[in-house]
């Protein structure tokens, strides 16, 4: 202490500057540390390794009749598989793209025209649209109808009317054989 007592009165300014510098340097280093320390807490809430590695879903399409729709689970969400009849394929292809909210040709949404595969989650607020079971309301465009806020999808899963901003999402999938697919 003696040394600082002796030096501080004549060199007051120097001492002040040194303290300011120390304060700022320590503050900056401390703030960086605190900021970095927060990251593990935030990142722990991101999907964990086991969740990310969740198995892809394999589906055998052979038993699905023309006109039949089935639902499979992929990453905890429903995936709609529609074995579309000729009429539905034609209706989907013939739509004037300029009239669409989210213009996308049907050909860009399917790998084989008879199989439409989309994630069955309404792009508005995440409800599951009706239309999978025969007899359910499919809406005026023959696709799906979301009962929550009335979004209507066509036979290509594109939004035609209602509050949803985007078409039903096409998940990544590939045909592993003629009638089997792997989603994810």
């Amino acid at each position: 202490m003696a040394e600082t007592v002796a030096t501080s009165p004549p060199h007051m300014d120097e001492g002040e500057t040194r303290r300011d510098f120390l304060l700022i340097a320590t503050g900056v280093v401390g703030a960086v540390g605190a900021g970095l320390a927060v990251w593990p807490f935030i990142h722990s809430m991101n999907p964990a390794a086991d969740t990310l590695a969740l198995a892809s879903t394999g589906v055998n399409l052979a038993p699905v009749q023309v006109g039949q729709r089935i639902t499979v689970v992929w990453r905890g969400k429903p995936v709609f598989i529609d074995h579309r009849p000729e009429a539905d394929i034609k209706a989907a292809a013939d739509v004037d793209l300029s009239k669409l909210v989210d213009p996308e040709p049907d050909s860009a949404r399917v790998q084989k025209p008879e199989w439409l595969i989309v994630v069955g989650v309404c792009t508005h607020l995440g409800c599951i649209p009706l239309g999978q079971k025969s007899g359910e309301n499919r809406g005026p465009y023959g696709g799906w109808f979301c009962p929550c806020h009335g979004s209507m999808y066509d036979t290509s899963g594109r939004i035609r009317q209602g509050p949803a901003p985007k078409n039903l999402v096409v998940p990544p999938y590939q045909f592993t054989a003629d009638t089997t697919i792997k989603i994810g």
């Binding site: 202490m1 600082t4 001492g15 040194r18 303290r19 120390l22 320590t26 280093v29 401390g30």
Partner: peptide
């Protein structure tokens, strides 16, 4: 180390 230097500075008076 920085905190120690700062503490010493602050307590010097």
């Amino acid at each position: 180390g920085l905190l120690y230097a700062l503490k010493r500075q602050i307590w010097s008076d």
